[in-house]
Nucleic acid binder design. Structure first.
Lengths: 259, 259
DNA sequence: GGAAATCAACTGGTCTGACCAGTCACCTGG
DNA sequence: CCAGGTGACTGGTCAGACCAGTTGATTTCC
């Protein structure tokens, strides 16, 4: 054996479609191909990469299943570049949950951590513009809850609020992950049905909760904002989680001693 | 317009390869095809699904890029079922981090949140086995730091410790995400170079830090364990972050008033 | 002239059939 | 009993074809 340790690293074959996919992904992630722009048509790519069409198509399938690209039959403009969305993250989370590698309790606990820290940071770092936007979103939620019980539009607006909080916290990553976990949770339990029964009262309570959070953020009280976020999730999910993982939620809730 | 609202939902065409992939994924997630088992060969699948080989192959590409399956040229047993692994989650998160992130500060802030909450929960929920494992890992780190300065092995062991903490917290998701973000950070700054200069002293300090964290966890002092985790990241990265995003770290650090 | 129908040149989705390099079970000769 | 050869596989890749659908220019009709 020469010198010390291994000098050469094992090398595994790299498939042609992989190299094609990597090249395109690199261009997308680097911002070179911004969202909304178009890839050349498949037959163009064939000649540009000097590979067969099936190779190009397999590469596009990989990118599409990663949510980076979308293609539509007959589109003369070629595949559309999508930005990086949290959709793929939530799919991965959903699969983990479905295969019992992680439980619903873990997902909810994770959301409690993300949401509450997001709230806490927002309370510390927000500016006036953030507050204005959040206020406006809450008002829209209120008008929605008063009108026809359009649950879909309501939860869309709810997601908007959370994103606004994440933006105020200065960390969009927090918001994106929280969104992904939220989607995965919704995927695991069909909460919409459970809620639809008394949609109106639920929406009103939700609006009230968001007002409290906003007030805490405006006051700069990070600890309170964080606790509110945790508590709301706990109240909502504690009963829906398997008994043996409920302790996860309780632990994430914290005992409020000094927090 | 009939009755109220839309009665029919828009329907988008479902490609053949999608239906193939869905059928196989369903069998895998339901446990019907356990990890280690084999899919039929591509030509078998062609006849079973009654589609062309390119369709089957595109479906397999999707499953493979989701980490559910792996295929090897020449393998007479067919593609291997891998079961659900967190690899895909890491890749998805890595992409999010790479594209949606304007600053290194956000990444580090996110890690501060994940690590510290992971520590806090571990302090609340650990059992004896967790403590034993963590102790062992720290001892291994110590012997590594004393021997030849093998930075690679050391940071591997470091990652092991963090995973052990995440397991103790009952939430592997926290650990997985922290790891993915860590990799993204390493991708942004080549910290290894920065560290290599005084590797030995750095490793010793790292071991001391981990001992402190373990002690806090063993004592059940979640607040302390969390603060230690945040502080270590802050100390290490504060100088390497662009000035205008350092406030993110400071905010995530907390002012320790009650936290 | 302007709106509507028509049409031709595309697109992506799918299928077929072929070839290659690699792998593995099996057989053969020692 | 084992080393080495061999042939029937495998997945990876390519080329070419067809289809249904989209698009935009062209033609037709009022």
């Amino acid at each position: 054996m020469s010198a010390e340790g291994a000098v050469f690293r094992p090398v595994q074959p790299v498939r042609a479609y992989q190299r094609v996919a990597e090249q395109i992904e690199e261009r997308i992630l680097s911002g070179d191909l911004p969202p909304g722009s178009r890839l050349p048509g498949e037959r163009d790519l064939v000649s540009q990469f000097a590979v067969g069409r099936s190779t190009v198509r397999e590469a596009l399938r990989v990118l599409q299943s990663a949510g980076l690209v979308r293609s539509r039959p007959g589109d003369p403009l070629g595949a559309e570049v999508l930005g990086v969305t949290p959709d793929n993250l939530s799919r991965a989370l959903g699969r983990l949950a479905r295969s019992h590698i992680s439980s619903l309790g873990e997902l909810v606990q994770f959301r409690m951590v993300l949401d509450s820290e997001s709230n806490r940071l927002a309370a510390r770092l927000h500016d006036e513009e953030d507050l204005r936007r959040m206020t406006e979103i809450i008002e829209r939620m209120e008008s929605l809850s008063a009108g026809t019980a359009d649950l879909h539009a309501f939860s869309e607006t709810d997601a908007l609020f959370h994103r606004a909080v994440a933006e105020a916290s200065g960390n969009s990553l927090l918001g994106l992950c929280a969104r992904a976990v939220h989607d995965a949770v919704v995927d695991v339990i069909e909460e919409k049905i459970a809620v639809a029964a008394d949609a109106t009262v639920w929406m009103e309570r939700s609006v009230a909760h968001h007002r409290q959070v906003l007030a805490a953020i405006r006051a700069g009280d990070g600890a309170l904002a964080a606790r509110l976020g945790r508590q709301a999730l706990y109240d909502y999910y504690a009963e829906r989680v398997e008994e043996d993982t409920r302790r996860l939620l309780t632990a994430a809730l914290g005992d409020d001693d000094g927090r």
